[in-house]
Computed example of a mutant assay.
Amino acid sequence: MKSVLNSPGFGITGSSGLFQCTNKLFLSDGATGLQIKEFARKNAANALSVGNMVMGMASILSSLNGHHHAACWLVLIGYLLDLADGAVARRLGACSALGAKLDDFADFTTFGIATALLLRTTDLLDNILCMCYVLSVFVRLCFFSSGIPFVYRGLPCIYSSAILASASMLSGRNLAMLRVIAVAMILFMISQNFYPHDRVLESQAWKKAVFAGGVVMVFCSSFPPACVYYLLWSVSFILFPYSLWSSKG
């Protein structure tokens, strides 16, 4: 049998063509790999925002089906995802208008609708309170800008949600207490008070350790210690916003 290289149609030109095709194939594979990496870089933060939205939708379904503890737990997971998505976007240089809108939609789903449903009963006044809570989150997300860099006007809604979810689980869903807390959180969110941009993952090491502790608590701990942890974390942001949680602090 004749060697392929010795065949009439396969000479110098034929082997050169083969090498060119091979090089093009490798270059194409390399370009595809770079495109995948670039796509991942641009959408990593968006994936976290989508994850936050999914947690919110799952919490809504859990509340509607009477699984109250699961609904609260999913809100706390959304809390962690929301703190991470902005840090990831800035770290990867992937901030965009789409990402900002997606983050707002996710926040409204998880920290507005899903959190309000934690308060829902068959009572008319409780349903009105739920609607007022959702509207306060809507106002907070639409008009949070203070005109000052890295400063918010009104309490960020993730902290009010974490307080309500934690207090609900710790109290065994004591509705009287939750109503009082919800009213207080509404007032904090629509207030004109200034709060710092909470760059937990872009600040001091101890703040990153607090975030890591939150991850450990939500996935590895029983309900009471985790709820106390998130409650103290969120209340500390309300009581000591600048002395503890300012990005410069």
Rank of each mutant, 00 (worst) to 15 (best):
V88H: 03
G86Q: 11
D103R: 01
R90Y: 08
L92E: 07
A100C: 02
R91W: 09
L92T: 10
A89T: 08
L83P: 00
V88M: 14
R90P: 14
F111N: 03
T110W: 01
D107L: 03
L92W: 09
G93Q: 06
A84T: 06
A106N: 07
D104V: 03
T115G: 05
A94H: 08
G99D: 04
A89F: 13
L83E: 11
D85Q: 08
A97W: 02
A94L: 01
L92Y: 15
G86K: 11
A94M: 03
L102N: 03
G93D: 10
L98N: 09
G112Y: 12
L102A: 06
L83F: 13
G99E: 04
T115V: 13
K101H: 15
L83M: 15
A84Y: 15
F108T: 00
T110R: 00
A114F: 10
F105M: 11
S96L: 05
A89G: 06
F108K: 01
A114C: 05
R90F: 11
F105W: 12
S96C: 07
D82F: 15
A114Y: 08
D107E: 09
D103W: 00
V88S: 02
R91T: 13
A87H: 09
V88T: 09
I113H: 05
F108L: 03
G112K: 08
